[in-house]
């Protein structure tokens, strides 16, 4: 348990967590205007389909897979106790990983080679794409070399992540992991670290509330009814309609 391990598996996650929380909240409050997915479909449509669709859907599957293994480790282990179910989950996760990798490569080459996209491509965009490609490749390698990830994630990583969240970091199990898996963990930290500084913030504002809001939206700047009512007390704040 050297200083390096302590930094990478204790220090870095906490730095990431603090930067992520402070960064995203500050950016949302201070510069709400630039919280956007910055879609480039308007400038280039055809290859975006082959990039964006596999990338996003694959990533959603993988993200929720990791999240479920973190939140419900025992259920995952119980589910995996049957080899057929284990194989199904591993294979589908691997396919999702390949989809993400394919999508990312399309998106990356699209950014590099399309003239119209150059004015809307920042260095950060390229940096994230390279980081995500690295991260997915590492994830695929880990899944291929150290089987069966879905089970040992629940057994090894979940206790580690939980120990981080209860502020009693326990990293002995982590340091024993293979090198590739360690890199994958560090990469995950870097991804979260970069979220507040990149376009990735849009994943925090996925519009699920659209599902239950009414279709039409009328906004009144001022409630004339209460303004006209002589019983309304005068305040500095104008009475608003709700």
């Amino acid at each position: 348990m050297g200083v390096l391990d302590n930094f990478l598996f204790v220090g870095l996650p906490y730095i990431t967590l603090v930067v992520f929380l402070v960064g995203t909240i500050y950016r949302y409050k201070a510069t709400k205007f630039n919280y956007s997915s910055l879609s480039s479909q308007f400038l280039e449509e055809s290859s975006l389909f082959w990039g964006s669709m596999p990338f996003h859907w694959g990533l959603a599957f993988l993200f929720f897979g990791h999240l479920i293994a973190f939140l419900f480790p025992s259920s995952v282990l119980a589910f995996n106790s049957h080899p057929v179910r284990l194989l199904i989950i591993e294979i589908s996760a691997f396919i999702a990983g390949l989809l993400v990798l394919f999508g990312l490569c399309v998106l990356f080459f699209r950014r590099i080679f399309n003239d119209r996209l150059k004015p809307v491509t920042t260095k950060m965009d390229i940096a994230i794409e390279l980081l995500l490609i690295t991260q997915v490749v590492l994830g695929l390698l880990v899944a291929y070399t150290s089987r069966w990830g879905s089970s040992w994630f629940a057994a090894v990583l979940t206790p580690y992540l939980r120990s981080l969240f209860v502020l009693q970091p326990e990293i002995s199990a982590i340091t024993a992991l293979p090198f590739l898996a360690k890199l994958h963990i560090i990469g995950a930290n870097l991804v979260f670290l970069l979220i507040p500084f990149s376009r990735l913030v849009h994943l925090l504002v996925v519009p699920f509330h659209y599902i239950w809001r009414p279709y039409q939206r009328v906004v009144w700047n001022i409630s004339r009814r209460s303004v006209r009512d002589p019983n309304t007390k005068w305040t500095l704040h104008r009475p608003k309609n709700t």
């Binding site: 205007f33 504002v205 659209y210 039409q216 009328v218 906004v219 009144w220 004339r224």
Partner: peptide, 30 residues
């Protein structure tokens, strides 16, 4: 447009009926 906006960024002003897009809420879902 109001009905289709997933973010709820577009609204109709009650007072004069002008339809506007709140630039701070628009997230380019297009």
């Amino acid at each position: 447009c109001v009905a289709s906006c997933p973010s709820g960024a577009i609204y109709k002003r009650g007072e004069d009926g002008v339809v506007l897009i709140n630039q701070k809420v628009c997230r380019a879902w297009r």
